[in-house]
Design a protein around this nucleic acid. Sequence first.
DNA 1: AATCTATTGTTTCGTTTGTAACTATAGTTG
DNA 2: CAACTATAGTTACAAACGAAACAATAGATT
Lengths: 149, 149
Amino acid sequence: MPDTFDLEKFLPYRLSLLSNRVSGAIADSYRHSHQISISEWRVIAILGQYPHSTATDLQHFTAMDKVNISRSVKRLIKRQLIASENHEHDGRARKLSLTAAGNDLRNEVIPRAQACEQQLTSTLSTDEIKQFSQIIDKLLRSETSNPIV
Amino acid sequence: MPDTFDLEKFLPYRLSLLSNRVSGAIADSYRHSHQISISEWRVIAILGQYPHSTATDLQHFTAMDKVNISRSVKRLIKRQLIASENHEHDGRARKLSLTAAGNDLRNEVIPRAQACEQQLTSTLSTDEIKQFSQIIDKLLRSETSNPIV
DNA sequence: AATCTATTGTTTCGTTTGTAACTATAGTTG
DNA sequence: CAACTATAGTTACAAACGAAACAATAGATT
């Protein structure tokens, strides 16, 4: 009787392997060049796109949990890469934005991020990249509504 | 001037989101039903396929680091799901295998794993599943030789 | 307005994780 | 075979993480 399960063929396992390798490599790249974690980079990236976001906004944009955001924001404020101001209508919230230094860092990291993405897909054809991207989007959309548990 | 970077379109980011969601859901499933982590499951899965593997063998099969393997093995031995015996030719290594209980657990978790995989791909067509799987393999093969850093 | 509930964001605490140091054994070289 | 180097696996320490408790404010209900 043949064994009924082969871990190396298990799609979620291979997906996890790939994602961990890619994220690990990118994390190394950002850390070596600019001393920031992927979480911090996500905050910076989003604040470049959506200045004056609150921590809750970031939570929605980045799918990070609020503790992680709180800690990333704390470190980035300490390094003066982002700054906070009071929210007009909500005394609990603070509006966050990049400082000039934060914006500079973002502009320096962007090409690095793009190079990582480029390297990731460099062995794929244009069609394959498109397929891969579309399938991931499809899965992300369905996953949100269908928790596996 | 349009902003030059959109995190939500960044492929490594979306890949990470997807993988984290899938792995998280599977981890919940295994933990609730059989009180094992994904790392422990990987060890059990591999030992079902390759009995008498050493920790180093597991390291190669599962791409986990040796500390993680050591700890998973320790917990599984404590729960008597795997057993170890001396290695004939190497006094440092131990040969690991599933106990009857470990084998039973593996057989119970396999259909659960398969259901997770099935659910993951349930919104994709047969063609898309094939494409996705092939592309991931292609990327895994190229990633090993091409560290992004 | 007083009270109750919900939300924002931080902190605390226990767990998990990874790096590096370590022990023990193998293998290699002079 | 003595000494060095490499490898198998564990342990120790510190950093990262997440769940839950928390303080502060908002909004709803009476």
